[in-house]
Simulated scan of single mutants.
Amino acid sequence: MANNYETLVLLSPELAEDNRKEILSNLTSIVDREGGTMVETDDWGMRQLAYPVEKQTRGYYVRLVYTAPGALVAELERNIRITDGIYKFMTVKLAA
């Protein structure tokens, strides 16, 4: 059974635009490959952080909304953890 999920990703402000696009395309390809469907990719851009993360005071935010089985979330988060340039992330299950 597929559920709706939202993943907020905080990327390093030092990444070039090409690197950011490559990371995001890798994440969306994982969703497609594992049987999910991307609903929306919301690019929030560079924002001031509430507290420093890895000595940075700014970060690049991207919100991914997708429909997927629960196992896909574990695979997506595993790939996020091993990707350089991603500082933090958070995944929540959206109400149906």
Rank of each mutant, 00 (worst) to 15 (best):
P69A: 15
Y51H: 10
A71M: 03
T37V: 10
V53K: 01
Y66A: 07
E6N: 02
G35S: 15
Y61N: 13
V53L: 07
A50P: 05
L64D: 04
G35Q: 02
V92N: 08
Y87Q: 00
I30C: 13
A71H: 04
L94V: 15
D84E: 10
I23Y: 08
Y51S: 11
T28D: 09
R33G: 13
I82E: 01
N19V: 07
A50S: 12
T41Y: 14
Y61V: 03
S12W: 10
A2S: 02
R33C: 06
L76P: 07
Y5K: 03
I23A: 09
Y66E: 09
N3W: 10
I30V: 15
V53M: 07
R47H: 09
T57K: 15
L8Q: 11
R81T: 02
G35W: 15
Y5M: 12
L76M: 11
T57A: 14
R63E: 05
M46D: 13
S12I: 15
L64F: 04
L49C: 02
A74C: 01
E54S: 05
L76H: 09
T83Y: 02
K55H: 07
Q48D: 04
S12Y: 06
E34P: 15
M38F: 04
V92Y: 12
R81I: 03
M46C: 12
K55G: 08
N79A: 01
L49M: 14
R78V: 14
Y60Q: 14
D18K: 04
L24T: 09
T91D: 01
N4D: 14
T28P: 04
L76R: 01
D42T: 12
Y87N: 01
A95Y: 05
A68T: 10
N4L: 15
V73A: 04
T83F: 08
E17T: 03
K88E: 10
L27Q: 00
S29L: 11
T28S: 09
V9I: 15
E17C: 05
M90K: 11
I80L: 04
R81K: 07
G85P: 01
Q48K: 13
V65D: 10
P69Q: 15
E17H: 11
T41F: 02
V65K: 10
R63C: 06
A68S: 15
I86V: 07
K93Y: 04
K55C: 07
E17A: 08
V31H: 00
E22C: 03
F89K: 00
A68M: 14
T91C: 02
G45E: 13
D32Q: 13
T7K: 13
R81D: 04
E17Q: 14
D42G: 15
L11E: 04
A71L: 05
L27V: 00
G35Y: 15
N79M: 07
K55N: 09
L49V: 05
I30L: 13
Y66M: 12
R78W: 10
A71P: 10
A95F: 04
V73Q: 01
T91P: 08
V92R: 00
E54L: 09
P13Y: 00
E6G: 04
R20K: 05
G35V: 02
G35D: 14
R47A: 11
L72M: 11
K93C: 02
I82Y: 09
D43T: 06
Y66P: 10
L24P: 02
Y87A: 06
R47E: 14
V9E: 06
A50M: 00
A2V: 14
T7R: 00
S25L: 15
Y66L: 12
L72G: 03
V9P: 02
K88L: 11
S29F: 02
W44D: 00
L11G: 03
